[in-house]
Simulated assay, not measured.
Amino acid sequence: MVAVVRTRVARTRFTMGLAVALFAAGVGPVAHAASIETIAKQAILVDITSNTVLFEKSPDQRMAPSSMSKIMTMYMVFDAIKEGRLTLESTLPVSERAWRMQGSKMFVELHNNIKVDDLIKGVIVQSGNDACIVFAEGLAGSESAFAERMNKRARELGLKDTNLTNATGWPDPNHYMTARDLSILAEHLIKDFPEYYHYYSIREFKYHGINQGNRNPLLYRGMDVDGMKTGHTEAGGYGLTASAEREGRRLILVVNGLPSMQARADESARLIEWGFREFATYALFKAGETVDQVPLWLGAQDTVPVTVPEDMKVTMARADRSGMKVSLVSNAPVAAPVKKGDVVGKVVVSAPGFPGKEFPVVAAQDVEKLGFVGRALAAAKFLIFGAS
């Protein structure tokens, strides 16, 4: 059976058969465009609008994340606020350990009680190691206990190669992440706490009479970047986790191992602009929109309408768009009964140079099985006329 469907991006052919067809390219997470290189030791660029990796270089190699691991510290803080264990107006005490903390500082005052709102800005804008210690001790009693909580949450979030020993990113051979894990964490923070993400776009913050600018260089370049966090240690080099939103698309970039602050700024800007320029995201179907009809065997009706449970979007190189092919693949006819929401096939999107992507399709309604008489008539019809 062949049906022709017009979508918002192309007129495409959907093919259903008795066997499930498989594309040789399989389901690949990485889209491909004109090649690009980077001097970063580790890098990943992801379009989270369609969950597509646009570029990667050693994304699963363990690395020193430096202050980029403060994204996890802030994830824990925002989670505590969301659960009601903290408010923005809550205050936390400054211990001598926090006050003496070296590296980048917010310059907290010894034994003072500081508002959570100010501490958040101290971590995000000023990269304050001292503020991180205040949060760790305030939420878990000690930094080591806080690190244990962070590692537990990291596993829950699907970070497969992350181990954190402190709240600041302070150099430690056992404190490591991967570029891929950082991109996943950044996406979770953006999506799980949209009401607090705006802190990452604050360009400067004054505390204790000292005004400090946000260390993220891309906030000042007018290129739609609205976060997130820089990092630097001798072991890790210069790194940046950045996010930008443009025309309905959001990209997350992680780079690390760069040789200088200038290289960090220039390489990050170049990779993000390349991602927006060379790729586009195409919306094919909205959640709940009927894709097509799938034939049924011994059903109370001959077909069942199928839909996609979530918005169906694909990101691919703009140059590959003209060769896009969208196929509905199913073991048709599907045996009745069918319940609404049952997976009855998949939509496969392919194009030259695009590795392919699959989306499940589900029944849009319940369809009961024919009764005894109906099944007998259907069997007789099949014997006389064969499959239709």
Rank of each mutant, 00 (worst) to 15 (best):
S350T: 15
A154H: 05
S58V: 13
E310A: 10
L377A: 14
G17F: 11
D266R: 15
T15R: 13
M177E: 06
L298Q: 14
G128E: 02
Q102C: 08
V53T: 06
G288E: 00
R149T: 06
S104V: 00
T49Y: 08
D226C: 05
K381I: 14
A24K: 13
V53D: 05
V349N: 07
R100N: 05
Y238G: 03
P352R: 12
V134P: 13
A167W: 04
A283P: 14
A387S: 14
K346Y: 08
S69W: 06
S144T: 14
A21D: 15
D172R: 01
E195T: 00
N113M: 14
K191Y: 11
A332F: 13
F276S: 08
S50L: 11
I48Q: 09
A287I: 09
E89I: 08
G128Y: 05
C132I: 06
N174I: 04
T315F: 06
G209W: 00
P173R: 09
F107I: 06
K313G: 11
T241H: 04
A280T: 12
R6L: 13
L119F: 06
M72S: 05
V9F: 10
H208T: 15
P259K: 07
V5N: 05
R375I: 01
M101D: 09
Y200P: 02
K346F: 10
M312C: 07
E137A: 00
P309V: 05
E310T: 10
M223L: 08
L164H: 05
M72A: 05
H232Q: 11
L271P: 04
F146V: 04
V77C: 03
L18H: 14
S183F: 03
N151P: 04
S67M: 01
N129G: 02
K152G: 11
M1T: 14
S268I: 09
E289R: 02
S127P: 00
V255I: 07
A147E: 01
T241D: 06
V362I: 09
I48W: 03
L88D: 03
Q61P: 09
S330T: 01
K381D: 15
A98Y: 02
E247T: 11
F55R: 07
R203W: 08
G138K: 01
H232F: 13
L139C: 06
P217L: 07
S90D: 11
D118C: 10
A98W: 03
K41G: 13
P360L: 03
G169R: 01
N51C: 07
R277W: 06
R221S: 12
T315E: 02
R321V: 12
I71P: 05
R155T: 14
V344Q: 06
I272P: 09
G386K: 09
K115Q: 15
A34F: 12
R215E: 10
P259Q: 08
C132M: 02
K229W: 04
N174V: 06
K357Q: 14
R221H: 12
L119E: 04
G222L: 01
G353S: 08
N151H: 02
D192F: 05
K206P: 03
L189R: 12
W99Y: 08
G209K: 01
R155Y: 14
K346S: 12
F279E: 10
L110R: 14
L296T: 04
T165Y: 07
T233I: 03
D161T: 13
H188R: 13
P309K: 06
T73A: 05
F14Y: 12
R250E: 02
